[in-house]
């Protein structure tokens, strides 16, 4: 540790102890130096760890919370079969062999308009068609950003 940083540490980190509880005040500068704390390396194959939509082995994780009620709702079976078909499709146009499954899913969903709302308003329609027309990657990336910020 350089004398300068040692000095700033002394100056900027204020620590006190109230009974069993220790309190540290740290400035932005103090915390700008990289942390020396060591974390245990994660096991990528941890069988108990929660997984995202696609498991490390390429399978679909139907219990992913990101699916909301999709896989468990009244059209869960239709959704699963359509999405599996699409996911595993090896056709040149991916999913082009899944028309039947997608149709079944769609027919089911239309029976539950409050669970699977369609875009009825014209502006929403236009918006989504524009998004698709333009650059779909960017459009969805923008939405992702909006959600996660």
């Amino acid at each position: 540790m350089t004398p300068v940083s040692a000095f700033s540490e002394l100056l900027l980190v204020v620590s006190c102890i109230v009974g069993k509880d220790r309190i540290i005040f740290a400035t932005k500068e103090d915390h700008e130096t990289p942390s020396s704390a060591e974390l245990v390396a994660d096991d990528p194959d941890d069988p108990y760890e929660e997984q995202g939509l696609i498991l490390p082995n390429g399978d679909i994780n139907w219990n992913c919370p990101c699916l909301g009620g999709m896989a468990s709702g009244p059209c869960g079976e239709q959704f699963k079969s359509a999405f599996s078909c699409f996911h595993y499709s090896t056709e040149e146009i991916k999913g082009s062999d899944c028309v039947d499954q997608f149709r079944a899913m769609q027919e089911c969903m239309q029976k539950y308009p409050d669970l699977y709302p369609q875009e009825d308003e014209n502006e929403e329609k236009e918006k989504s068609s524009k998004d698709l027309e333009a650059t779909p990657m960017e459009a969805s990336a923008a939405k992702e950003k909006k959600v996660s910020s």
Binding site: C64, C66, L67, L132, P136, S140, S148
Partner: peptide, 23 residues
Amino acid sequence: VPGKAGSNLLLYLIVGGTVTGTG
């Protein structure tokens, strides 16, 4: 759960959709 899973799915499907035709 990685928060991006849903978005990835969406991306997946939108891309899939646009491969077969324009918006």
